[in-house]
Structures are given as structure tokens and as C-alpha cells.
Simulated scan of single mutants.
Amino acid sequence: MKTLGSTGRSWLKGFHIFFACLWIGAAASMILLTFVRGHIIDGDELWAVHASIKLIDDYIIIPSAIGCLMTGILFSLLTNWGFFKFNWIIVKYIINIAAILFGTFFLGPWVNGMEAISKVDRLLALQNDTYLYYLTMNKYFGSLQAIILIIAAFISVFKPWGKRETNKKKAKSSLS
């Protein structure tokens, strides 16, 4: 397959960084809004905060996560980085895919649940066990996911763990 030139790599890198910044920034915004919720005195405010979190999730988190994955795949396909040449790239794929799956099956439903409950119950949501469970899970696991995304960004910068040894190289070194 043909590889990108330096200008193409720069554009791709720019988009990859853009999507990563959006994802991390949106995650930080959602966490901040979740913790600000403690200062709310009105049911309409409570629902508005959760509606805002849901909008950030639907329109920034989801597209930016997919954008990171797609630009990462393009990097692997269109440059010499490859999919499995470097351990740090494998770790980044694991983080990206795990974050998307965890967000899809856990964080997203918790966000949607908090918004739906607060829309109907307003301030009484603060006494709803399901709402409180979603809130607690979102605080802890949303924060953890944001930290892991920040770690993934630093992995991109430092590129630890080097190049993977191929089976041929392992066989040659064991024969020596």
C-alpha cells in the first residue's frame, strides 16, 4: 500500500491530535459538570446539567472517539507505523477500543439514565437509587476513563516500549 508523504502525515497527525483534544476536553467538561451538580438547588437546573452532559456525550465524545480510532487506523495503513510493529501502538488501540466499548455499554447508558430520571423527577432524582447509582458510577469511571485517555496522549508523545520483536528475529537470537 502507498504511504503518505510528509504533508499528508502532518494533516493526519493534526486531525488525530484534534480528535484526541476534543475527546479529553469533553470528558473533562462532563466530569466538571457532574461534580458541579452538588451546588444545584432547583430541579430544572439539575436536568439542564444532565441534558448538557448528554449533549456533550452525543455530539463531542462519540464523534471524537470515532475520529481518534479512524485516524489511528489511517496512520497504521498509510504510514510505516503499522498496526503491530510497536508495542505502544498496540496499547493505544487497546485503550481506544476499550474506551469506546466501555463508553457505549456503561458510561453512555449511565449518562442517558441520569438525564432521563432528572427530566422526569427533577430534584427528587436526588432521592432515586438508580439515579444515585448512575451518578456514582459516572463520577468514578468517567474520571478513570479521562485519566486513561490522558495517559494515551502521553504514550503518543513518549512512544515507550519500543519496537516488537518478530518471530524471525527471536528465532535468530535463540540460535546464536
Rank of each mutant, 00 (worst) to 15 (best):
residue 47 W to G: 06
residue 129 D to Y: 07
residue 4 L to A: 04
residue 125 A to V: 00
residue 14 G to C: 00
residue 123 L to M: 11
residue 6 S to P: 07
residue 152 A to H: 09
residue 38 G to T: 13
residue 37 R to Q: 14
residue 101 L to V: 12
residue 32 L to C: 11
residue 115 E to Q: 15
residue 70 M to L: 15
residue 88 W to P: 04
residue 135 L to A: 10
residue 70 M to H: 05
residue 5 G to A: 09
residue 149 L to H: 01
residue 27 A to L: 02
residue 126 L to V: 10
residue 145 Q to F: 08
residue 129 D to F: 09
residue 115 E to S: 15
residue 18 F to E: 03
residue 104 T to K: 10
residue 46 L to T: 04
residue 170 K to V: 13
residue 151 I to C: 06
residue 145 Q to L: 15
residue 159 K to F: 02
residue 108 G to S: 13
residue 11 W to Q: 12
residue 139 K to A: 04
residue 11 W to G: 14
residue 134 Y to E: 03
residue 17 I to T: 12
residue 149 L to K: 03
residue 51 A to S: 14
residue 117 I to W: 02
residue 69 L to E: 03
residue 139 K to D: 01
residue 170 K to T: 12
residue 61 I to D: 01
residue 152 A to T: 05
residue 100 I to N: 01
residue 116 A to Q: 07
residue 83 F to R: 03
residue 100 I to W: 11
residue 8 G to R: 05
residue 149 L to P: 00
residue 52 S to M: 05
residue 75 F to Q: 06
residue 21 C to L: 14
residue 118 S to H: 06
residue 134 Y to C: 10
residue 153 A to Y: 06
residue 151 I to D: 03
residue 13 K to N: 15
residue 13 K to F: 14
residue 48 A to T: 07
residue 45 E to M: 11
residue 103 G to R: 00
residue 35 F to K: 08
residue 155 I to N: 05
residue 41 I to K: 13
residue 42 D to I: 05
residue 29 S to C: 11
